[in-house]
């Protein structure tokens, strides 16, 4: 998800040498827990890492509207429909907060959107999986938003001020998402045997992709060190993944559902739930564009952009006409 972009970091970050004393002063500010603000001096690699992370996060929010939007017209009750509509609207809002935060780093939203539509920018691998049943909406809220919260809470303390402020707003809103998802799962799990089977099927399909959201294992992720040193990230991928598993397994047991992992067991001594091996080949394939829905998601995004073009053109023309009349 939000950390996956670091996989694709180009190592041209050190193109222009930066004065050692400035770098040292910058690191001293970070170490003193000072926030960095848009016009402050920052190393080029810090700026690029943030643009990559924040824009990827924004893209994830926007693309994340698609799998859930798929069930808006088929929600089982008005209550569920109103909640899902509010949630999808929130995701759109989160995307916009984040594009605005990225823009403070000197890149425009249009450029970022263009990179997404051209397939040059990444978004969370999780949104390339299909939502086949209503239970998937429950599983997304419970697991996907649960994993997102785990990742996002430490980002509220990110060293870059605009990103941290956006994350604070997002985290406040995200908590509703997770609870509405869990409520859907609970209702299904306590329902008819058919409903319970739906909930189990959703957990079976979403569990492993949710664990993959935290990005590659620490032994594979080459950019974590700098991100931790700059306090962009506060915890490594594996640390966050373990926190998520520890928090989520008891919830799943409360639901009376089984996790699709024969190796899942509680490690008394360490106080952690130990899980089986993640299929990293699947993760890499989805990230490389070969997940179940990659092409569909980008096609939907492109179509939305295309269909909205006349609206943007009309709004701009209208504003220009009003300005011209006012000037007369």
């Amino acid at each position: 998800m939000y950390t996956q972009g670091l996989l694709h970091a180009k190592d041209d970050d050190r193109a222009a040498p930066e004065p050692a004393d400035r770098l040292a002063r910058f690191q001293a500010r970070i170490d003193a827990e000072e926030k960095i603000e848009p016009n402050d001096w920052m190393p080029e690699a810090y700026r690029r890492t943030l643009v990559r992370m924040i824009s990827q996060h924004a893209h994830s929010e926007i693309v994340g509207m698609l799998p859930e939007g798929n069930w808006l017209t088929r929600a089982p009750s008005l209550r569920r429909k109103a909640a899902l509509l509010a949630k999808v609207q929130d995701e759109g809002g989160h995307g916009l907060y984040l594009y605005a935060a990225a823009e403070t780093l000197g890149v425009s939203r249009e450029e970022l959107m263009e990179q997404l539509l051209l397939g040059k920018a990444k978004y969370s691998s999780i949104f390339n999986y299909p939502t086949l049943s209503w239970a998937d909406i429950g599983a997304i809220g419970w697991l996907v938003d649960g994993a997102a919260i785990m990742n996002q809470i430490p980002l509220c303390r990110c060293s870059y001020g605009p990103y941290a402020r956006a994350m604070i707003r997002i985290c406040k809103e995200e908590s509703f998402h997770q609870r509405q998802g869990f409520e859907i799962m609970l209702t299904l799990a306590r329902g008819t045997s058919e409903q319970k089977a739906m909930a189990q099927d959703a957990l079976d399909r979403w569990w492993w992709p949710s664990l993959m959201m935290f990005g590659p294992s620490d032994t594979q992720s080459q950019h974590s060190d700098a991100s931790l040193r700059w306090k962009i990230k506060r915890f490594s991928n594996d640390e966050l993944r373990q926190k998520f598993v520890d928090a989520t397994v008891p919830q799943g047991r409360f639901l009376g559902l089984a996790f699709p992992d024969a190796d899942l067991r509680y490690d008394e001594a360490a106080g952690h739930w130990r899980f089986g091996a993640i299929d990293w080949a699947e993760f890499r394939a989805v990230l490389a564009g070969n997940g179940p829905c990659n092409r569909q998601r980008l096609a939907q995004r492109s179509a939305a952009d295309e269909r909205g073009r006349w609206v943007r053109a009309a709004a701009t023309a209208h504003a220009e006409k009003r300005r011209a009349r006012a000037a007369e």
Binding site: A100, E173, A319
Partner: peptide, 23 residues
């Protein structure tokens, strides 16, 4: 609280309402 993109002031107010005051 943040920023929005819009063609004119009236649309900026609308967008700000939608993006920043949902609760």
């Amino acid at each position: 609280v943040g920023s929005v993109h819009a063609a004119d002031a009236a649309m900026a107010l609308q967008a700000a309402r939608d993006v920043y005051t949902r609760r």
